[in-house]
Design a protein around this nucleic acid. Structure first.
Lengths: 205, 205
DNA sequence: CCATTACGCTACGACTCGTAGCGAAACCGC
DNA sequence: GCGGTTTCGCTACGAGTCGTAGCGTAATGG
């Protein structure tokens, strides 16, 4: 979404909002049927019922389009309040895993992340529209656990550093399980993962 | 490497082994300079000094070629014996992070994993030549730690299940840190990660 | 020496890309 | 209503890549 500042807004025919929605939906549909590599902008345009040139007027290319299409999948992500830190983690990880289980997320997410390695602007777009919203859940969850007394209090500076680490552990582990090991992150697995994350390897069973 | 079973081996001109090495090296070179998306087989062939048709005789396509080229990067991965579990983990994670820091690994690994989502044969190829070797390090490291008495003994069945989880946590976290968060997995970070992995979130500082 | 396989080279149709140009449509302020 | 402005749909285009076929040559083994 390239937000058009009201200052820049001039008179003229406005862009169709329904076209935006149709294009993004068509992109996800094409991701499911064709996957990333065989997805073409011409095909998406046909599916959405718009001209190919309209796509190029709004997005720089395939990468940016897919980022926006996939980002909408993560809109539903919420931090539940289940009473304990363990339950909160299990709840949010299960939501995350459910999104990653959808074929349009699998096909699109890894591909755009791979592309972002040589494209800083794309990485920033992914960070702003996908990653940061996930990281906020970790931040909020940790703050809530400290308020409950489940975690030892730390100074804010130390906490910020740790949140980055925890975030990489949670998101990275679930992504690896789902996309590399290609096995489902179901309730049994999430429980074992949460226990390991909270208690560590050295804890006795 | 499509191993030719000696039974199938017939007479005729043998395939050039030096050509194989030149092609894989050229592939990594192209990955560094062009990245995954702009890498073409015609370009690789030119760099390697072979004909484009030779490439297609040995590999089914871009995906399989890059898997083999990237797999060689992980040959150097070894499990050190540093005396303690914590030191062993830090050592192997630092090696893994060093490989992932190389641009040819960054550009190629995520891309082929993304492709493998819609291609089971490719996923199997990645598993056999890249993932399984990494997982073996976790398996050996855990066995050694139990022999030292650093981990509580578990029955072999339970251990196998846990190794999968630990592997996803270690590999997933390092990959996410390096490729998604795009920050270096240096010694300071690895120490903090190891501590969290061993002691868990609830441990007091 | 002969069968067999790999190699280098060229050429090819099919496809996708991203852009340009055009007329028509939709919205603004006057 | 009436210009000015922007978007839209459509068509067409050169450029680039793909994967394959065909051919003559080079390197093995029996």
């Amino acid at each position: 979404m390239q937000s058009r500042t009201p200052a820049t807004r001039a008179s003229g025919r406005p862009r169709s909002a329904t076209a935006d929605a149709a294009i993004l939906a068509a992109t996800r549909e094409a991701l499911v049927e064709l996957g990333w590599s065989k997805l073409t902008l011409g095909d998406v345009a046909t599916r959405a019922g718009v001209a190919k040139t309209t796509l190029y007027r709004r997005w720089a290319g395939k990468n940016e389009l897919v980022v926006d299409a996939v980002a909408e999948l993560f809109d539903e992500l919420r931090l539940p309040d289940c009473g304990t830190l363990a339950a909160d983690i299990e709840g949010v990880v299960l939501q995350f895993a459910a999104i990653l289980a959808r074929p349009e997320a699998k096909s699109g997410l890894m591909a755009v992340i791979a592309e972002s390695i040589r494209d800083d602007a794309l990485r920033e777009r992914i960070r702003a529209s996908i990653v940061d919203r996930q990281k906020r859940l970790v931040l909020d969850g940790r703050a809530r656990a400290q308020a409950r007394g489940e975690l030892p209090p730390t100074d804010p500076e130390e906490a910020a550093r740790t949140v980055d680490l925890i975030f990489d552990m949670v998101a990275g582990t679930v992504v690896h399980r789902t996309l590399v090991s290609a096995r489902p992150a179901d309730e049994v697995w999430v429980r074992a993962f949460t226990r390991l994350l909270l208690q560590g390897l050295t804890a006795s069973p």
